Amino acid sequence: MAAQPINDESDNDTYPDVPAIPAGLRIPPPHRRAPVHHQPIAATGKAPAVWLLGAHGRSGAGTLARIWAPAADADGGWPAADRYPGVVVVARTDFDGLTAAQDLVLQAAAGLIGEAILLGTALVPYAPGRLPKSLRRKAEIVAAASPAVWQIPWIDDLPLHPRSELATWSPADPPPPPPGRMRGPVSSAASPQPQLAAVGMDIFTAARTAYAR
Rank of each mutant, 00 (worst) to 15 (best):
A65M: 04
A100W: 00
I21Y: 04
H31N: 15
G57T: 13
G54Y: 00
D73K: 02
L25Q: 09
V88I: 15
G57Q: 11
Q107F: 05
L53H: 05
D75N: 13
R26P: 05
A55H: 05
D75C: 06
T93H: 01
D17S: 14
V87H: 03
A65Q: 03
T63L: 09
V18H: 01
K46S: 10
P35K: 11
G24Y: 05
Y84L: 10
A81P: 01
A61E: 01
P70W: 03
R92L: 10
T44M: 08
W78S: 03
D13P: 00
R92F: 05
A20G: 09
F95G: 07
Q39M: 10
A101E: 05
P19C: 07
G62V: 05
P30H: 05
A69Q: 15
P28Q: 06
T99K: 11
A91N: 07
H38G: 02
P85E: 08
H37R: 13
W68E: 08
A42T: 13
R32L: 14
A20T: 14
A23K: 15
A65S: 15
A101L: 07
G57I: 08
V105P: 00
V90G: 03
A55D: 06
I41K: 07
A43G: 05
Q39A: 14
Q107K: 06
A74Q: 02
A72R: 14
Y15T: 07
A42P: 02
W51C: 04
H31P: 10
W51N: 00
R58N: 15
A81Y: 02
